[in-house]
Design a protein around this nucleic acid. Structure first.
Lengths: 130, 130
DNA sequence: TTACCTGCAAACCATTTGCAGATCC
DNA sequence: GGATCTGCAAATGGTTTGCAGGTAA
């Protein structure tokens, strides 16, 4: 069931916040950041707008291995790293050539249709590694 | 806090069930399968044993993009495919050579320690591609 | 005026946990 | 005998939802 989006100050603020940070925060972190500027905002509204933005492909919703969900203001395909100590989620630049044949290779012995993939790297971030 | 595992009929049955299926079931599916043989088993016990087996590295716990958790009786590193229609999780064989340099490539411009990665493929399974 | 958006609070649901008794070793 | 395991049921915690009023177009 398709609906049309109208302008919403909250939604704009959420997207702005995600675009302005290199972190990939959880819904709760977004909520508290928003609340600093607009104390009356509610958690339900933050969830509704995050999900709407993700459905429209304007942000990314990332499901981490520990079950938590993080959001990324950059909707273009790229890769992520999760620190197993502090749980931070970071961007990770990777030479696209390395992966150009990955879907084809995976399709070789597979009896279905492979449309894409996502890769999560894990380890220790710069702050936790020592 | 380390504790020692004792023998448990339930835990053995859970691992046996996971080893005997090519599916990658959720905790609830495992629970119902176990209940068919031992009606008194409880859901809490299934969760406790699945988590214990995963912590000991005897099974894998897989976090899917839709937020659901699936379990895999094969703890050796391999790759998975999720059908975006029916949600099934399947194994996917992939030539190891394709990925042998992946962690190194990812480490190039990264200011932390990359210990590994997981790859999830998605698309349509053989039953849903129609 | 008619959707859509929002705050609020309750509902939801998968997972975890406290407890008292059973079981392993 | 003491630690682990279990069933049961309640608690937990992140996310969703129903509702009544607010707002965009």
């Amino acid at each position: 069931m398709e609906t049309v989006s109208r302008y919403s100050r909250n939604r704009e603020a959420i997207q702005e916040y995600l675009l302005g940070t290199k972190e990939h925060p959880t819904a709760d972190v977004v909520y508290h950041a928003l609340k600093a500027k607009n104390p009356s905002v509610s958690l339900g509204t933050v969830y509704r707008n995050l999900n709407q933005l993700a459905e429209q492909g304007r942000i990314l919703k990332l499901s981490m291995d520990d079950g938590s969900e993080h959001f990324d203001g950059n909707p273009l395909p790229h890769h992520h790293f999760t620190c197993r100590m502090c749980g931070r989620v970071l961007d990770l630049d990777l030479d696209p050539d390395i992966l150009k044949d990955l879907n084809d290779a995976a399709s070789a012995d597979f009896n279905g249709v492979i449309e894409g993939h996502s890769i999560y790297f894990y380890g220790l971030c710069s702050l936790c590694k020592k």
